[in-house]
């Protein structure tokens, strides 16, 4: 997955300022930054929901699994029906097999017939992620996948995402406000502030960038932003 000098304007406001980065197969990359940094805008452009004002991206819409922040599912349909519907819309050849695979992956086999609206937020988010993975895409984009989840549900979700990257070599790019999560699960972090890509590297490299005094990644991240005027 690759972005080259991607910029986005909303009227006069520049939401993204010539952002460039690349992610390798099997790599998990976290996109972190304060509110309004442009994280969702960048993910939306990569997902094909928006067009960049300038610059280019190297991924095709069909090659990217998209997992929006809020579960994009039908609450009146069952878990199985949601998965089946999106498998058909994705054009998955053997949609029943894909549904079975995703039910196994999310551990929701027993609740396959339950209406989605009756599931907990964590389970709904698992279905949301499973839908993003139905077509077995080489790249997966997730917008704050674990926000509003409790720690146990969060662990389940990350188990699912990390397993996908390790076992299938899926490139994963996710945005998060939880910098601890980024430190724990990401191989690399991208720090975005006011539409500008300020840092690209491992969490350790970010700590080193602000000096070895900071032991805490979150404190290092805040200090990093402050030192750069954000």
């Amino acid at each position: 997955m690759r972005a080259d000098a991607v910029s986005k304007f909303y009227g006069q406001r520049e939401a993204l300022k010539s952002v460039s980065f690349a992610a390798e197969p099997g790599e998990v990359v976290a996109l972190i930054g304060p509110n309004g940094a442009g994280k969702t805008t960048l993910l939306s452009i990569l997902a094909g929901l928006q067009e960049a004002s300038s610059g280019s991206i190297s991924v095709e819409r069909g090659d990217v699994g998209w997992v929006p922040q809020q579960a994009a599912v039908y609450r009146k349909l069952s878990v199985g029906e949601n998965l089946r519907l999106f498998a058909r819309l994705e054009g998955v050849a053997d949609h029943e097999a894909a549904v079975e695979r995703m039910l196994a992956l999310t551990g929701l086999h027993e609740r396959a017939r339950d209406e989605l609206g009756t599931l907990s937020g964590g389970n709904q988010q698992r279905v949301n992620i499973a839908i993003g993975l139905l077509a077995d895409p080489p790249a997966l984009l997730l917008d704050e996948p674990s926000s509003s989840l409790d720690p146990r549900q969060r662990a389940h979700v990350w188990e699912l995402i990390s397993g996908r990257a390790q076992e299938r070599g899926t490139t994963v790019l996710f945005s998060t406000h939880d910098v601890g999560e980024a430190e724990r699960y990401a191989d690399r972090v991208l720090v975005l502030a006011d539409g500008e890509l300020l840092f690209e590297g491992s969490p350790v490299a970010l700590e080193e960038a602000v000096g070895s005094r900071e032991r805490d990644f979150e404190a290092a991240f805040v200090r990093f932003l402050r030192e750069r005027g954000h």
């Binding site: 094909g48 929901l49 819409r61 998209w66 929006p68 994009a72 599912v73 039908y74 999106f86 994705e90």
Partner: peptide, 13 residues
């Protein structure tokens, strides 16, 4: 309202 719109129009429909 179900947030499915974005998912649908990004290529599925």
């Amino acid at each position: 309202e179900e947030h499915a719109f974005g998912r649908l129009v990004r290529g599925l429909v």
